[in-house]
Design a protein around this nucleic acid. Structure first.
Lengths: 491, 491
DNA sequence: CTTAATTTGTACGTATGTATA
DNA sequence: GTATACATACGTACAAATTAA
């Protein structure tokens, strides 16, 4: 077959461009080949000729040719010339307008289908509210002993620099698992061995991991309503049917669960400090719940997200500590005690399930980080952790009182605060008839973050209310925020 | 009703135990109440009497009583005594031996069923091999510019301490997404905007996230065989049917895919440096693959895990850069360039799918970390990143040559190294007839890590071979390891 | 078949701007 | 600030392969 000669007339060089000339040539020629402007098998002009025509060195042309040869577009034959080896396959849809159109159609339909499928999981999206008062779940960062933290980090790095940079254990850094086990035993009445502790990237991942291990597509999950919607989204993402169970002052009542609609595989609760209402689950309800789980084979997810900060009396011990059947997965987090961007949490799983959790963990996200966990471990071992909690407890208690004062000052009659015994946020009931979303929107305009209670419920209607975080903000910030909140509530 | 007096004779204290005595008392009494050894309404002995009997301070007894009172088990009446308030509900199965047995049975069956269900996902587990030569995918940690890294971290913290401790954007720290986009554009020919970049906890999570967004239960995934089994486990965990596609020197051949067994939703490939064999996918195969994806509606996962280190010529540009239909999800990682325990990677997703990925991301693991990403961003902006890659490139090239020398010296005839042009590991073909697993086991005993090739394949048989990592080890370590490897290979 | 012209592939040396140590 | 390394660009030379006269 006679090889047609190709001219390459279409290619223009730009001397002023910062892009190297070799690369300009490479790109232009590749484009020409892929779009079939240069036919397969065609012979290119000699490098000499091209160098002369483009007024560059022959080496420059050869540089471009080399790259194209390496990528398989060209093939040089000594003495004969350089040829386009690569025949853009005829199947290649890009070359014909019809093919292109067909593909575009397929691609568009694919995306539409995907969007459709995912629609059902959408629900309430995570609102990215700004870091303004009174955003809930923000700890006091100003009071975090960052210098101490850095000191621990340095010590940890000095000791084990090389080993802390490599791959860690799937379930987490052992000294941290040990420290967490001790901590939970001492302060939360959790019964566990270090081996049962799983370190994960935040409590959200902990819940995810639990779902991925214990939950099968189509199974039923019972959740508190109102409750933590982040968990609902996770469960629904696994194809679970999430059924709301009403909550009152004694917490979730398992006897009011929709048993008729199918037995639960997972029951998600926050017994120490119900999210978002803040109630503590009563002892009777706890025992009923545990009994139901043991008798029915359901697992309980105990979300203990906020239990560290209790202002009256001793913290109640955990559900997990009462359980004797191995039905409870305990979920905790460091994000709210230390700082959120640390993104570390933990699970305590029943002893018999550790290996199953290890399997799913290694699928999601093989080898975890090491430096931060090692730092936390030391931070705990040296007692800074417990000390910081104690300090924050009294600080947050003060701030809760400040919030009460400010509400009494600026919002008498407009907002009634729930009596809160623990946590970092409280609920304020709106006395007027304005829907809470509307108040939230107005407050946002005034620079105050206060999510509406209605955002946390799916089925049961609540009186209008706001969730107010008081932990992360100074006295003046709280005062100011409540003042502006008062301006946002129509009287 | 007359309250019966209770004796508490059953309670024994253990002075030697590290558990505080208050807590021992608390637990023992709680246990007695819950198991109905102490009846509801019963009057306990006075704290004075108990203190005397147990030979502890009255304060200790009061501590235990306080806790039990706070939790709702007891109620003290001044002048009258302390009473058991909590009546264990009769439903409570734990109280009767029959109920206990029934629960135990349910619990045991639940766990067995779970184990059964999860069995199918088990497959090849992640082998936790020690950090010994010649373990693959270990970068040279000794040469990591840790001082510079710490400097960047410090600078980043100084600038934005408070904001770096709070919650970040779902898809990652924006400056890092921007830096990654620029880097990939310049060095990998990836076409992308910063908004398409998703920061995740390692490439494993990237693959997981992709599967959770694009893959539905029961759909088909095509994968290179041999290939990265971590990805297979992820896909199978989502209920996908994973079909192996053979690989040769030109990479995976889409024309040999098992089309008859169902159309693919996802195609997982490593075109720049096939894992584990190290071949580069030819241009024709690349275009065929892209064409197939665009025409069939499949998505391609391009795992570009190792492409930074190329020792001859320029790195080939990515599949993503050739794609015009938005069918490619590009997966990269920092773990192999910086250090593994950093656990950070990234995806580049098609522009139309960003919001879907954001949704799934927020389910898996809401708000990502900030300090490390910010540090990387600065590290990149200041050029340390590119510099470090360049340095490591020439270092690894040297080490590859050292490996070749050592093999020539100690293993002439026993092992033939694949000619490698890039990456951090290479393949050595065993010339004898011993199965590779056996050689691996012997090597492990001699302190050398060298995974068998057979571990990376599912269906197609390969000649026996070993995967040898040369990047993370010093000259003497490599030499020594090869010597010990020679002792492990029967001649 | 021989020969001369042409072409690639390889190997030098040099200059320059940039980034790095 | 200075020395060093590196990528880009340019020029020259020559061997090996091919082609056409």
């Amino acid at each position: 077959m006679q090889h047609p000669s190709l001219t390459l007339n279409m290619i223009q060089l730009d001397l002023a461009s910062p892009e190297p000339m070799q690369f300009q040539l490479y790109r232009a020629m590749r484009e020409a080949i892929v779009t079939k402007q240069l036919a397969a098998g065609g012979r290119l002009p000699s490098t000499r000729e091209l160098a002369q025509r483009w007024k560059v060195s022959r080496n420059t042309v050869m540089g471009a040719f080399d790259q194209l040869t390496a990528e398989g577009y060209l093939k040089g034959k000594q003495g004969a010339g350089t040829f386009v080896t690569f025949s853009v396959p005829d199947f290649y849809s890009r070359v014909t307008p019809a093919g292109r159109a067909a593909c575009a159609d397929v691609v568009a339909r694919r995306e539409a289908a995907l969007r459709q499928r995912r629609m059902k999981y959408q629900g309430c999206t995570h609102e990215p509210s700004p870091l303004a008062p009174l955003r809930p779940t923000v700890p006091s960062l100003e009071n975090f002993p960052f210098a101490l933290w850095e000191q621990c980090r340095k010590a940890v790095l000095r000791q084990g620099e090389r080993s802390l940079l490599t791959y860690g254990d799937t379930l987490g850094y052992w000294p941290l698992r040990r420290a967490v086990a001790t901590y939970l035993r001492d302060t939360r009445g959790v019964r566990c061995e270090p081996a049962q502790v799983v370190i994960c990237c935040g409590s959200q991942q902990g819940i995810y991991l639990t779902a991925s291990t214990l939950l099968e597509h189509g199974e039923t999950v019972w959740m508190e309503d109102p409750g933590y919607q982040g968990a609902r989204i996770v469960y629904e993402g696994f194809g679970a049917k999430v059924k709301p169970v009403p909550v009152d002052r004694e917490g979730m009542d398992i006897q009011r669960a929709p048993v008729a609609e199918g037995v639960a595989r997972l029951i998600h609760v926050s017994p120490s400090h119900q999210f978002p209402l803040g109630h503590t689950m009563s002892l009777e309800r706890r025992l009923r719940l545990l009994d139901y789980a043991a008798a029915s084979g359901a697992y309980i997810v105990e979300d203990d997200y906020d239990s560290e900060f209790r202002y009256e009396g001793r913290p109640l011990s955990s559900l997990q500590g009462l359980d004797q059947s191995g039905s409870v997965v305990y979920v905790g987090t460091f994000s709210k005690i230390l700082f959120p961007s640390l993104r570390l949490g933990y699970l305590v799983v029943p002893p018999g399930l550790v290996d199953l959790f290890e399997q799913s963990r290694s699928r999601i996200d093989g080898n975890p980080t090491l430096i931060d966990p090692a730092t936390i471990a030391l931070f705990m071992e040296e007692g800074h952790f417990a000390r910081h909690i104690r300090k924050m407890r009294s600080l947050y208690q003060e701030r809760l009182e400040l919030l009460h004062d400010a509400v009494a000052r600026y919002l008498r009659g407009g907002l009634e605060l729930e009596k809160q015994q623990c946590g970092m946020h409280t609920v304020g009931w709106l006395k007027g008839s304005t829907p809470d979303q509307e108040v939230t929107a107005r407050a946002q305009k005034n620079g105050v973050v206060a999510p509406p209670l209605s955002q946390y419920t799916r089925r049961f209607t609540l009186p209008p209310g706001l969730v107010l975080g008081f932990a992360g903000f100074r006295a003046d910030e709280i005062d100011n925020a409540v003042k502006r909140l008062a301006d946002s509530i129509p009287l």
